[in-house]
């Protein structure tokens, strides 16, 4: 099986550097730019509107309909960045997301290696059972999680949310990493063992650098799904570990919703994601195929 994936991998490399772009373009109709342009416009408009609102004062938002801020203000952002009860939400979110990413990837690495290299009793069933956890609706787990973490005294801590998110991130990380590890020829393992490397030494020193892009992709996905999830993180926290996405709901005050601050908070939740995407942009396509291309 390793042979098959190696040949595909090298085929991609050959064509990637060769005549691909030029000859492909003959097959791409002229409408491409229009299709992509319209699609990107569709994606960007709602986000533009959010950014636009975040730079307006509330009286301008409610008083008149303007396509761009007439009276540009950064006051909404200032409100958020100077108030600990606001910006601690970002800190909380980042803490549990990073914890979750580290835990998920760390436990998924050896397991993915086992699935990609060995056949053992019950391996296929085990793999599917792991995947079923990715399929479990968070709504099913919300209440039991609440009771479980309350009873072990972890309620409203970062680690509780990080562990809860492992429910869907660990299976995903195993799935992605297994796909990438399959592409590494087994001869490398065997040679290393003959050369006298122990398993741990080989794994950290030789194997992990080989699948570095896979680890990056897995970490990206763990980050992504932990960052966007709200149902579980909101159920498991009250004050100390409350994520920013849950804090946003409090803009609904007695005098109506504070739209400007709400929009600014929304914009700030998009920023970390955008930064992460920028760093992994060259691996995104392969990553979304979970290493199976």
């Amino acid at each position: 099986m390793s042979d098959g994936s190696v040949t595909t991998a090298s085929a991609v490399d050959d064509t990637g550097t060769g005549t691909r772009g030029r000859s492909l373009s003959r097959f791409v109709p002229n409408g491409s730019v229009i299709v992509i342009g319209l699609y990107l416009l569709f994606l960007m408009l709602p986000i533009y509107w959010l950014v636009n609102m975040s730079l307006k004062t509330n009286s301008e938002i409610l008083g008149s309909f303007t396509l761009w801020p007439q009276d540009l203000t950064l006051g909404n952002y200032r409100t958020i960045l100077t108030d600990p009860s606001w910006y601690m939400g970002y800190v909380n979110s980042l803490i549990y997301v990073v914890m979750n990413t580290v835990i998920s990837v760390a436990v998924a690495l050896p397991a993915a290696y086992a699935f990609s290299r060995y056949s053992f009793l019950g391996d296929k069933h085990l793999f599917f059972w792991l995947l079923t956890n990715r399929m479990a609706p968070p709504a099913v787990f919300a209440l039991p999680f609440f009771q479980l973490y309350s009873s072990v005294g972890l309620f409203d801590t970062h680690i509780a949310v990080a562990l809860a998110h492992c429910l869907f991130n660990v299976p995903l990380a195993v799935w992605i990493l297994e796909g990438f590890m399959r592409g590494v020829p087994r001869e490398i393992d065997e040679t290393a063992y003959i050369d006298g490397y122990g398993f741990g030494h080989f794994f950290v020193k030789i194997f992990m650098p080989l699948i570095a892009s896979g680890i990056g992709v897995a970490a990206f996905f763990c980050f992504m799904f932990s960052w966007v999830e709200l149902l579980l993180s909101r159920t498991l926290t009250t004050v100390d570990a409350k994520p920013i996405a849950a804090i946003m709901t409090r803009t609904q005050g007695a005098s109506g919703i504070d739209w400007g601050v709400l929009a600014a908070a929304g914009v700030l939740t998009i920023v970390p994601g955008a930064l992460v995407i920028w760093f992994v942009r060259n691996y995104i396509a392969k990553g979304f195929a979970l290493g199976r291309v």
Binding site: L43, I47, M224, W227, L230, A245, G273, A274, I277, R281
Partner: peptide
């Protein structure tokens, strides 16, 4: 295109 297209995927669900 990749970066812009991936952007909506990384926005928290309630946002």
């Amino acid at each position: 295109c990749l970066v812009v297209m991936a952007l909506p995927l990384l926005i928290p669900f309630n946002v």
